[in-house]
Simulated assay, not measured.
Amino acid sequence: MNTYIYLLIAVAFEAFGSACLQASNQFTRLWPSIGVFVGFGAAFYFFTLVLKVLPLGITYALWSGIGMVMIAGAGWVLFGQKLDFWGFIGISLIICGILVINLLSKSATH
């Protein structure tokens, strides 16, 4: 399977785990609490698969950037959390950074 597919799967599980963390109400709700451990466990498993191919710094930068964008979207859709103008500017800059790494940088390969 493509390394970037593994990375997207890892980030999706991390976003799921983070959303469950919010929904768990400080681990007082059972199913969201279980979702935290399942989400983060699966995320780290797929993260290790990506590290077999991509260097740690690039992998973590992509993981963090894509994750922040996904979590901001999940917070908006699931929990009604809003971003102001500067929040959108920041998210846009994160997306630009992800694009620069993937389209222009030669660091994204071993």
Rank of each mutant, 00 (worst) to 15 (best):
L30G: 10
W31Y: 14
W31S: 03
W31P: 01
W31I: 06
P32E: 07
P32I: 02
S33P: 09
I34G: 01
G35W: 04
G35M: 02
G35T: 09
G35K: 01
V36R: 05
V38T: 10
V38L: 11
F40A: 10
F40W: 10
F40N: 08
G41W: 08
G41I: 07
A42G: 07
A42P: 01
A42T: 08
A42H: 03
A42I: 12
A43Y: 01
F44K: 04
F44I: 05
F44C: 06
Y45C: 03
F46R: 08
F46P: 04
T48N: 10
T48R: 14
V50Y: 06
V50Q: 02
V50E: 05
V50G: 09
K52E: 15
K52A: 13
L54R: 00
L54M: 14
P55W: 12
P55Q: 15
P55L: 12
P55Y: 15
L56C: 11
G57N: 15
G57R: 14
G57P: 06
I58C: 06
Y60H: 09
Y60V: 11
Y60N: 04
Y60A: 04
A61I: 11
A61W: 08
L62I: 11
L62Q: 01
W63N: 03
W63Y: 14
S64N: 10
G65H: 03
I66R: 05
I66S: 05
I66P: 02
G67D: 07
G67Y: 00
G67Q: 08
M68R: 04
V69W: 07
I71Q: 02
I71W: 03
A72E: 05
A72S: 14
A72F: 06
G73M: 11
A74L: 15
A74G: 08
G75K: 06
G75Q: 03
G75S: 08
W76E: 01
V77L: 15
V77F: 15
L78Y: 11
L78R: 14
L78T: 12
F79H: 08
G80M: 09
G80V: 07
Q81F: 00
Q81K: 10
K82V: 13
K82M: 10
L83S: 09
D84H: 09
F85N: 05
W86R: 10
G87Q: 00
F88I: 03
F88T: 02
F88D: 03
I89R: 09
I89K: 07
G90A: 07
L93H: 09
I94W: 02
C96S: 14
G97I: 05
I98R: 14
I98M: 15
I98T: 13
I98E: 10
I98L: 14
V100D: 06
V100P: 08
V100C: 11
N102A: 11
L104S: 15
L104M: 15
